[in-house]
Write a protein that binds this DNA or RNA. Sequence first.
DNA 1: AAGATGATCTTTACGCCGTCCAGATTCAGA
DNA 2: TCTGAATCTGGACGGCGTAAAGATCATCTT
Lengths: 209, 209
Amino acid sequence: MRETVVAENRPYHHGDLRRALIDAARRLLESEGPTALSLRAVAREAGVSPAAPYHHFKDKGELLDAVAHEGWDMLNAQMAKAKAEATTIQDKLTGLGVSYVRFAQANPALYRVMYDSSRDKEELPDHAHMENDSAYCQVRDTFIEAGADVTNEIDLELATNAAWCAAHGMAEMISFKMFDHLKVALGGEEAFIRATFQHLGIFAAAQPR
Amino acid sequence: MRETVVAENRPYHHGDLRRALIDAARRLLESEGPTALSLRAVAREAGVSPAAPYHHFKDKGELLDAVAHEGWDMLNAQMAKAKAEATTIQDKLTGLGVSYVRFAQANPALYRVMYDSSRDKEELPDHAHMENDSAYCQVRDTFIEAGADVTNEIDLELATNAAWCAAHGMAEMISFKMFDHLKVALGGEEAFIRATFQHLGIFAAAQPR
DNA sequence: AAGATGATCTTTACGCCGTCCAGATTCAGA
DNA sequence: TCTGAATCTGGACGGCGTAAAGATCATCTT
């Protein structure tokens, strides 16, 4: 009896409304931006009543958390891909940084939700810095591959955190027009990102002096 | 006739309502946080009707712009003080960075408004990076004092921008609890900030290699 | 001095928001 | 097939940003 429904399992009235709501939210996020992301608009987009989401999420914040979760997954995957495609350790490190910033620039609204949804909790979700395939752990592991002192746990965390701060600051700043002339002067956005990272010298910690 | 009213000049019905609204907004921002900062709440706090602010600000965004403006002024002044109090060039640079991050940590709601109010405009206000006493110019000038190559305008801007990215990223990250153990391990928040900046090596550009 | 002018503020109203509640619908298991 | 529970709808409440119309009051003109 369970085998009749295979690909599309619609367990209840609507189907997987939880899934549909998250998709609708991400669709709205891309097309209308973060300010237009109201719970009612999401329900409208999904074709249900304004109160329907409350059977799948405690409140609006929990829906945004779910959207943010998928954002972190995307970011982690994109960075893993960048790391895998790079050959040298140097390329891996810069590739990770550039990949992070480009993700934020390619998905500005989603990137905003990822951090905003954690703001009041004052804690980023575990899969952003705890799980093995998280962006944080990938950078830390690459630092180790590059020869960082593994015994000095504090210093290693400090270096990884510093790199995260640099990448996040850059991701936030790049949306402002006032740096456009620098991008032009350097011949493109990626060159600008790389040059900025070079100034920040996030590789210093990775290279045993 | 103008001399009768000296200290308290109440030009119209309420007095300087524009001033009062900005003050009310900043009061609410401190006590209730950024999410509680509705235009109606500000009007309530100032003791006027919900529509009264519209005679002094085009919309809510313009009121927030005014609040943000004062935030930038405060930040610029605090950084100028930090720079003045430092003796060596090294101290000036680190002092500027630490001062920036500590401002954000001491006034998290205001700091948020400063950037959020510029988000849709995609442009930070002039007095954040154009005027001589702006944070940006102070850092750039200190780079020059430290011996940066003045003829290479692009590189100088790039270095200043990189330092800004680092400081902003740090300012945003420091509110999350997950770095608390690092603060403890390093013996306090300021030590943590300094150590992170050291890892980012924002001074590299200032010291001619 | 008196009246006109225009800025300031209030009242009222509209549509949207997040959220709750009561009832209708539909599914799952006995 | 009946029962209970999960899911969705419709309606309601208070709060929001904002617009329009009317009241109030300082200032300017005469």
